[in-house]
């Protein structure tokens, strides 16, 4: 992998606020160009701080950060030209219209004239704001505001777009629309860094994700890598009659990669590496030991399982996304 194909290089970054809060501790990661990188973690895990460091809003205490090849600490002005940012708070000017906001945003990047006008029109259209382009933002719904926030981050066609909890508080429909937009960005080569506390969101969108807890990265990889490292698939077998537990254990001992065996009534549960491959052997082993099988279900581990394993605390603070 060459340096050119890396949109973001973060090395050993630490940030301690002056009130003594250690928000980020020794975080390192890289993001390839044109991919979606997810930062997952509960509130207060350090996601927003990492995004603020990457977008030059705040400086790291130590460590190096390069975005699109630019050192954000040494050359923040240069870095600002290649990044776009959609902050958690938004940042729409309530008294301005969306057309005015987009135009001003473009001008701050040195754009102007017909090129800017065309770009603003395109974005208004793309984000479904064309009809209310000249209405003050204060009259907008939450979803419309959010769409404008994202459009504002794209006016200058950034190499890297940061989205800090972009779908928090959005209705399921708007959320799905935004997801489609994010897919579209990656497709045209924009690198997207997405922070979220919705498990479903990273699973759906992220090519790579990092799970953060208390300012540290506790796990990192592609969603499928992380899930396969999570100790295999969850297996549930329903049996004809309650078996003897020792009999079951003895039968399954010869099947590779089975663990966490639990028997309760007619039910048998276990964790299986590569469940789809092992299942036939597992059934054969049970049958030949005289334990008759009614049904078998396999379920892949979720990012939630991965999160629980790594972050070592309950998911109560990490909410599941409402179903679409």
């Amino acid at each position: 992998m060459t340096t050119e194909s890396l949109a973001i290089e973060v090395e050993d970054v630490t940030k301690t606020y002056s009130n003594g809060v250690r928000a980020v501790e020794g975080v390192s990661f890289t993001v390839r160009s044109g991919t979606v990188f997810g930062l997952l973690g509960p509130n207060g895990a350090g996601k927003s701080t990492i995004i603020k460091i990457l977008t030059t809003l705040t400086r790291p205490g130590s460590g190096t950060v390069r975005v699109a090849g630019v050192d954000v600490v040494k050359e923040p002005v240069l870095a600002r030209r290649v990044i776009g940012c959609v902050a958690q708070q938004g940042g729409g000017d309530p008294s301005a219209t969306s057309r005015e906001s987009l135009t001003l945003q473009g001008r701050l990047y040195g754009l102007g004239g017909r090129r800017l006008r065309t770009q603003v029109d395109l974005l208004l259209e793309r984000f479904g704001l064309g009809e209310c382009a000249d209405r003050p933002i204060r009259t907008f719904s939450g979803g419309m505001r959010r769409r404008l926030d994202v459009a504002l981050g794209l006016v200058h066609e950034p190499h890297v777009l940061f989205l800090d909890e972009p779908t928090t508080g959005l209705d399921p429909e708007t959320r799905t629309e935004l997801w489609a937009e994010i897919f579209g960005m990656a497709a045209v080569g924009i690198t997207v860094v997405l922070s979220t506390h919705y498990l479903e969101e990273v699973e759906e969108l992220a090519d790579t994700l990092a799970i953060l807890d208390r300012g540290r990265i506790v796990a990192m990889g592609t969603p499928s890598q992380l899930k396969s490292e999570a100790g295999g698939d969850a297996l549930r077998v329903e049996l004809v009659e309650p078996p003897g537990e020792s009999k079951v254990r003895k039968a399954l001992a010869c099947v590779e990669g089975v663990g966490d065996i639990m028997v309760a009534g007619c039910g048998l549960s276990a964790r299986v590496q590569r469940g789809a491959v092992s299942a036939p052997y597992l059934v054969a082993a049970l049958e030949s030991a005289g334990v008759h099988v009614v049904s078998l279900t396999l379920s892949a581990p979720t990012i939630g399982d991965v999160y629980r394993q790594h972050a070592g605390r309950t998911l109560r603070s990490v909410q599941e996304a409402p179903s679409r």
Binding site: R80, C85, A87, Q88, Q89, G90, G91, D93, Q105, L152
Partner: peptide, 16 residues
């Protein structure tokens, strides 16, 4: 007020 609305931070991440 603009700080609270996130407006200031929005401007601070631009090259202004």
């Amino acid at each position: 007020t603009e700080m609270e609305q996130g407006l200031l931070n929005r401007f601070l991440v631009t090259p202004v």
